[in-house]
Write a protein that binds this DNA or RNA. Structure first.
Lengths: 347, 347
DNA sequence: CTGAAAGCGCTTACAG
DNA sequence: CTGAAAGCGCTTACAG
C-alpha cells in the first residue's frame, strides 16, 4: 500500500555483509559478530572486518536487522493534543528536541506520530499495536483518552510525560514535581505579601492540571488562607483559555493581587488582559507561570515561573522506556522543579 | 549496537501472513497479493483473506516488507539549525505538524532527525546515505552546509523547504515567493507614506535571507528611492539577532519611520527595543514581519506580516519528494504569499 | 574463536 | 487467478 514508487535513484546496490566478509576473508557470521560485539572475535578478525567495512562503505540494513532480531530500533513520540496547542506551546518542541538527542545517542530512531483526528488515532493505534516500534513516549495524555486503555491492553511499552490519571499503576511516567512546584510559586507570592491570589488551572483530566491546583491549595491552606472558588478559573493550556480565564477572574474578583497560572502560555495571555484592565504587572497584580519554556523570558514583563528540567525529564523518559521495553514493571519518576524569579513577580 | 534489550513485553507471537493464509484457506502468496493489491485476485479469495485478517488481528510487519521491497516507507525530516532556533521559531513546529499529517495520509512514517552537533551530523549522514529512509525533507538549509554536497553525492532524494543557494539545479525545493512577499511588504509601507524604511535581513546564506532582501531593494528602487546601507542590518532569524539589529539601526538611522524584518521572530524582537527607545509602534515606527507564524498575532501590537501558506508548502514538499524518489528530475516550486495587515502597520 | 545453516516475515517473478 | 520457491540482509543457536 506504500505510495512510493520503486526507487531508481538509490543507484547501484549497496554492499552487504557478504561483500564485507569476502573482502575481509572471513565468514559473514563473523562480520555480524564484530558488528554486534556480543561474542568473542579474534583481534585479527575484528581488524580485517573493520578495514573491509571502511573499504566497502558498508552500512547495516536496519530492516534486515529488525526482521532478524524482532526489535525495531525505533521509538514513537506520540502527540495527542489538538493541533493548535502544538503550535503554541514551546514545551512540546523543547521536549521533542531533547528526546531526539537522547534517542540518537542510544542509536534509536524517533518516529513522530500525531494523533489528533479520529482517523489518525485509528491508524496510529494499529501501527503501535502492530509492534512496529519498540515503545512509545506519550506526551501530555488526558485521562479520558481511549488510546490509553488500548495501549495498555495491547501491551505496548509506554512512558508518559506527566503522570497519567487513572493509569498510575499501569503506565510508567516521568513528571516534574507539579505539586511542590505549584506550592513554591504560591508560597513565593505569599512571601511577598499577596493575599488575594488567583489561579488559572490546566485541564483537570491531566495530572499537571490537578497537581498544580493542589499545590496552590496546599500553599494557601498552610498559611491559614481559605481557597475561594471565585479565585479559581480553569484553562486548557491554550493562550485563548488563559485570556478568558483572566477576564473571568477580574470580573469575579476585582480585588485580586496575584495570579498563578499553571502554564507560561496561559500566564503570558493574562498580561494584555491585565494591561487593558488598567492593572500594572507586577505593581497591581503579580503574575507567576509554570514551565519556564523559553516563552517566559520574552514576555513583557518577563515571567516569574516554575522551571521544569526538561533535559532531565527527557533523559529519564528514554531510560525508563528502555527498562519497560526490557520487561520491567511500570514506575513513576518525579523530578524536582525550581522557582525562577523575573520581573512579573520580583522578590 | 542497539541499546534496547529483547522484548518480553511484546507478549505472544503476532500472527503472520501464513497464519492468515491458513485461516483463509489460501496460499500465503495470495494473502500478500490482496495486501498489496497490485495483481488480480478472485473476489472470493479477497473476502476470505479480509475475514481472516480481521479474525487473526494480523498487521503487516514493515521490516519484512521493507527488506523484500527495498523501500523503507519512511521519510526523514531533517533539521540542521542550531538548537536555540528550534525552540524559538514556531515555523518549524508548524511545518513539522503539517508534514506529519500529509505523510501519514500517504502511509509514510516521519523520522525526525536533528543534526546540530558534528557527531549528530556524521551519524545522520551515515544513516541517510545508508538508504534507510526513502527520502529526506530538508528544513532551512544554509548554503555552506557540507551536508548538502554529501546528500547530493550520495544520491539521496531530497526536497528542501526554501531554495538551496548553490544547489538550485540539484536539490528540489518548495518555497514561498520570498521576493514578491518582501516586495509587497515594503510596498505596503511605501503606500502608507513611509520613506525611511529599514530592514532586518535573514542570514545571507539562505534563500529566504537573500530574496527577502532583494524584494526590499526592488520595492525601494521601483519607487525611485535609494537603498541606504545605514538602513540595512543583518540578523540570523533569532530573536536576539533581531533585537541587536534594531539597536544598530536606531543608532545609525534614528530617523527611520519603518522596519521590515525578514521574520516574525525578529520583528517581534524589535518591539521592546523600540519601546525602550521611546518610539511608539505604529505611530512613530511601523513594523512588518514575515511568516505569519502564529507569533504575529500574539505580539503587542500584533504584527502586519507576509503570510506563507505552510499547509500548501507541506503538501507540495511531500508530493515532490515522492516524485524525486520515483526518479524524476529536480524541480523548484514557488508558492505565493499574501500580506496580512495588523496593528503594527495598519492601512 | 569461527563456519554452515536455519529463520525472521514479507514480495515477486515463474509456472501453471 | 493462484501455488511453490527464491530471495531481501541480517542474527543466532549449533557444532566444532
Amino acid at each position: 500500500m506504500l505510495t512510493v514508487p520503486s526507487s531508481p535513484s538509490s543507484g547501484r546496490k549497496r554492499p552487504t555483509i557478504r561483500d564485507v566478509a569476502r573482502e575481509a576473508g572471513v565468514s559473514y557470521a563473523t562480520v555480524s559478530r564484530v558488528l554486534n560485539g556480543h561474542d568473542w572475535v579474534s583481534p585479527e578478525a575484528v581488524k580485517a572486518v573493520r578495514d573491509a567495512i571502511a573499504r566497502t562503505g558498508y552500512a547495516t540494513n536496519p530492516h534486515a536487522r529488525s526482521l532478524a532480531t524482532g526489535r525495531s530500533g525505533s521509538v514513537a513520540f506520540l502527540l495527542t493534543e489538538p493541533q493548535h496547542l502544538l503550535f503554541e506551546d514551546p514545551n512540546f518542541s523543547v521536549l521533542l528536541r531533547a528526546v531526539a538527542t537522547v534517542l540518537s545517542s542510544r542509536q534509536l530512531m524517533l518516529i513522530l506520530m500525531i494523533a489528533s483526528t479520529p482517523e489518525e488515532r485509528t491508524q496510529t493505534m494499529a501501527y503501535l499495536a502492530g509492534g512496529h516500534v519498540d515503545g512509545v513516549l506519550l506526551v501530555s495524555p488526558h485521562s479520558g483518552d481511549p488510546l490509553l486503555g488500548q495501549l495498555v491492553q495491547a501491551n505496548v511499552p509506554v512512558v508518559a510525560c506527566g503522570r497519567v490519571l487513572g493509569y498510575e499503576e499501569s503506565i510508567s511516567s516521568v513528571a516534574a514535581d507539579d505539586l511542590a512546584g505549584a506550592r513554591s510559586a504560591v508560597e513565593h507570592l505569599l512571601g511577598v505579601g499577596c493575599r488575594r491570589i488567583a489561579t488559572i488551572t490546566g485541564p483537570l483530566d491531566t495530572s499537571g492540571g490537578v497537581y498544580r491546583l493542589n499545590g496552590y491549595r496546599d500553599a494557601l491552606l498552610a498559611h491559614g488562607l481559605p481557597v475561594e472558588p471565585g479565585l479559581v478559573a480553569h484553562g486548557d493550556w491554550s493562550r485563548a483559555s488563559g485570556a478568558d480565564a483572566m477576564r473571568t477572574l477580574l470580573e469575579r474578583s476585582p480585588g485580586l493581587d496575584a495570579v498563578f497560572a499553571a502554564s507560561d502560555i496561559m500566564a503570558a495571555a493574562t498580561l494584555p488582559i491585565l494591561r487593558e484592565a488598567g492593572r500594572t504587572v507586577p505593581d497591581d497584580v503579580r503574575v507567576v507561570g509554570f514551565d519556564d519554556s523559553g516563552l517566559a523570558e520574552t514576555t513583557d514583563p518577563p515571567l516569574t515561573t516554575v522551571s521544569q528540567p526538561m533535559q532531565r525529564i527527557s533523559e529519564e523518559m528514554v531510560r525508563l522506556l528502555i527498562d519497560v521495553i526490557g520487561g520491567r514493571t511500570p514506575l513513576s519518576i518525579t523530578v524536582p522543579t525550581s522557582l525562577v524569579v523575573r520581573s512579573s513577580s520580583p522578590v
